[in-house]
Nucleic acid binder design. Structure first.
Lengths: 129, 129
DNA sequence: GTCAGTCACTTTCGAATTGGAAGTGACTCG
DNA sequence: CGAGTCACTTCCAATTCGAAAGTGACTGAC
């Protein structure tokens, strides 16, 4: 069921977007795929937030069905997949950037620079409030 | 319990942000407060997405406790409150804007221009995929 | 005064999801 | 062969959701 066959409960773009990605695990998976080179089940499972395996499996399946990501086999015996964001998935990057900016400014979270792949650790900015 | 006393499960800004606003009702409430002049319980309840009253009450209470919004009485008998975003809440606007851009581009959602308060209805953009 | 309507919640309860842990099958390797 | 690894799946208690009904404090009409 791709994005174009999903029945939405609202005409509003934000509400629609949140129906697709409005839970925290989905965006965290997309973050890891987008920026951190984590593209296998085990790598995604190994993030700091420690997503439970059943939720990770369900999210990957769902995001694939929606066309946000796709998987491709990188070996055959046993078959193993890597997961890759589609253009729909990649185009969520500005959302991630703004979330990160807010989390950095208001919550003292760390800052990742996607272009240079560098991180500023959490807690290094003053509280801007 | 304000943002500065919340215990986070991750150092990552995005994960932290999602711990605060990573459910769909929260951001929809913030959207209505931010752009649509819906600042009373009844007005917020009347949005197209039809948030259930118990969830709305809980989200308002939680967001107030976190310092994302505040409430002020606009009448006394019976006492009635309006809800207003704090600076923390208002600074989520770029997140909303990017969500809207993605939802508009990929999901044919409508587009709202906050500066002019004008809306382009859902379904008016071609599918850019 | 009574009654119906309004509003801001609260409560109820079944359904759905989450989260943590254990389990399973298909491998690989010593 | 057995142990370890990986990608899930299953299980189950806890939590959250969603829809509807309930409640209390009003207001206004009769």
């Amino acid at each position: 069921m791709k994005l174009d066959s999903h029945e939405f409960r609202s005409r509003c773009s934000i509400a629609r977007a949140l129906e697709i990605i409005g839970d925290r695990w989905t965006l965290l998976v997309i973050r890891d795929l987008m920026w951190h080179g984590k593209d296998t089940f085990l790598a995604l499972q190994g993030s700091e937030e420690r997503i439970p395996a059943n939720l990770l499996a369900q999210r990957l399946k769902r995001l694939e069905a929606l066309g946000i990501l796709r998987r491709e086999a990188y070996q055959q015996r046993p078959v193993r997949y890597r997961y890759l964001l589609t253009e729909e998935g990649l185009s969520l990057e500005p959302v991630l950037l703004e979330l990160m900016a807010w989390g950095h400014a208001k919550l003292e979270g760390g800052f990742y620079h996607p272009d240079t792949q560098r991180s500023v650790p959490a807690g290094t900015s003053g509280r801007n409030r």
